[in-house]
Design a protein around this nucleic acid. Structure first.
Lengths: 353, 353
DNA sequence: CTGAAAGCGCTAACAG
DNA sequence: CTGTTAGCGCTTTCAG
């Protein structure tokens, strides 16, 4: 910076003022300084600046996973807002419990960021408490944190809306397929199930626990098994509401492989509006992780400027139905359903319990 | 830090030495200092430290997209290495040309990171040159950059290996489906195609440009059209090598929807070993983005320590075939192929040109 | 509107 | 093995 000052024939203070965009710099001087800075390829050192301002110009995020559509999209939304605000994004990738314990032990974000966004973790109260004395705004993303700022989607409404859609199509036996073991997402999962139950109850359709099954994303066998379980019920469902698009695609795949036409024989509804949903024509409840990221970023910006305001602000984002090709009105049952054998279950593993 | 020093009854220097893990601190003092630090919840300010050490403790990455399996996985691999090395990860998300111009204009990473990893961009020589005078190691990830350190997968070998697999199964009419318009990935794309051509040539199978088609990921219509084009050739292919798993899945979907059995009628081979490949049983050429990220992180670490070594080091990672359920030996042509009508093309748009 | 001076929190010689 | 001292590169009063 001294170099720039010299080249422009001014003092360092003036260079600083110019580069920070203060109005109190004469046009002529500003011009000279800016040229000098450009010619010398000068960029302010955040480190030095933050030492005196007390602001780091950094927003940190804590994420359990990065290769996920949800987290990736949210980070994209966040990234846009942050750059517009001149903030940098540092990522703490904390995939397992060991790393996590270490993170909460050391809290590396302390003093090295102006705000922390916690993504999709199911934090213990103890961990949250630890974050509370971090001396910076902490925002909970994709989860509702009591008494703390958070940004999330109205999963209950989404679950309800999706279920209603199926009810409106005439379905009464509606299954719900949960995604098991997606660490950090149990909050959403429970909420969606709650919405499903609410909608059924509101419609006077009795809840049936046999219709709620689970599968592990990425473990084909569990999907086949879950689907098989449903198809072999005394009163099998005519529609399946799958908690997550990626899992819904696995379900579609399983059904189609065994000759079950979707949506003719069975409607399938997903949740997320993952990119893949569009490719395979999956009807789904859309949420916008990009929007979540953006909202979280804006909340962060606000809290950095006004630390005390909005301490408990919750931003709840909407979902909406995107009907595509996998949900259809309930068709009357096939002509002669006399023989119990007429609906063979789906492929290998279908009879597994 | 002064507080910690006082509480432990030592000087600030000693606190610094202790916290940085220098051996020259007596066990007893170390103990006192560590306790004091913990009690006061003290964490070193990177900003202040870097001001004097000249190291920021930060590795920056420049990415064109975040919600992609590839980039996400690579960042996970990178993240692991970085944390182990005590480095932080800052992400510059630069999705479009405007942002990109701005990035190269301002080069915000200058002085604010110890190394920069450039992910999957097709940089112009001018942009690369700009990065060259960044005063820090710049590593090109997922692309070969002449004379500059880079980490990438041997896409040519992958393309060759995949094609050989299909040749070994008896296929001779092998199509290649390119992914169009995936910004930042044309390097890999070209390499894979090159490998495909090499393998065919080596095997004495004539190249046929009609067998190389393109489609846009996420635009179903283009996939249907590309597949239709292939199926309506005078000599249609018996296998399709798709440059990317996600696109391959769209192809599978299209084929299955129109009753084309895979792999009985047509083999389909992907590239990536994307998670989704496993779910749908797609045979594919595996690469490991996590490994790429890890290797890039280690190279970054090395270059930060020894800036002049390895200036041109290239790390080339292998690929390997994962045969699953979508490739099979060429079956003899169906019994009586007399009538030209016996093989209807695939669904709507199949005849489109 | 601009310059001089002080100091942000830390580390790295240099003594002891 | 530990303390003292002198900055690192910036921003910010405070004068002018």
């Amino acid at each position: 910076m001294a170099d720039v000052a010299e080249r422009a024939g001014v003092s360092a203070s003036t260079v600083s003022r110019t580069l920070r965009g203060y109005a109190s710099v004469s046009a002529e001087v500003r011009e000279r300084v800016e040229r000098a800075a450009r010619e010398l390829n000068f960029a302010i050192s955040r480190q030095a600046a933050s030492l005196v301002t007390g602001k780091t110009g950094v927003v940190a995020v804590l994420v359990p996973i990065l290769k996920s559509w949800f987290v990736g999209s949210a980070l994209e939304g966040l990234g846009l807002v942050l750059r517009a605000a001149g903030l940098e994004l540092v990522v703490y990738y904390v995939p397992d419990m060991v790393e996590r314990a270490d993170f909460f032990e050391r809290l590396p974000a302390r003093r090295n960021a102006d705000a922390l966004l916690v993504f999709s973790f199911d934090l213990t109260e103890e961990e949250s408490a630890r974050l509370d004395d971090l001396q910076m705004p902490v925002i909970y993303v994709s989860q509702h944190a009591e008494g703390r700022p958070s940004v999330y989607v109205d999963d209950v409404a989404g679950g309800r809306g999706g279920t209603r859609h199926l009810l409106n199509l005439g379905h009464r036996r509606i299954a719900f397929l949960r995604a098991i073991g997606v660490s950090g997402f149990t909050f959403s999962s429970n909420e969606r199930l709650t919405g499903y139950r609410q909608a059924l109850t509101d419609a006077g359709v009795p809840l049936d626990d046999e219709l709620v099954v689970g599968a592990v994303l990425g473990e084909d066998r569990t999907v086949v098994q879950a689907v098989g379980q449903l198809l072999s019920l005394r009163h099998p469902p005519t529609a399946i509401f799958v908690e997550q698009d990626e899992l819904a695609v696995a379900v579609l795949w399983t059904l189609r492989k065994s000759g079950f036409d979707v949506p003719e024989r069975l409607s399938v509804l997903g949740f997320d509006d993952h990119d893949i949903a569009r490719w395979v024509g999956l009807s789904t409840i859309a949420q916008s992780p990009t929007e979540i990221g953006r909202a979280a970023g804006e909340l962060a910006r606000a809290l950095i400027e006004t630390p005390d305001a909005d301490r408990e602000r919750h931003i709840v984002l909407p979902t909406h139905l995107i009907p595509r090709a996998t949900t259809a009105p309930l068709t009357p049952p096939p002509p002669a359903p006399e023989s119990g054998q007429e609906t063979p279950p789906a492929g290998p593993g279908a009879w597994a319990d």
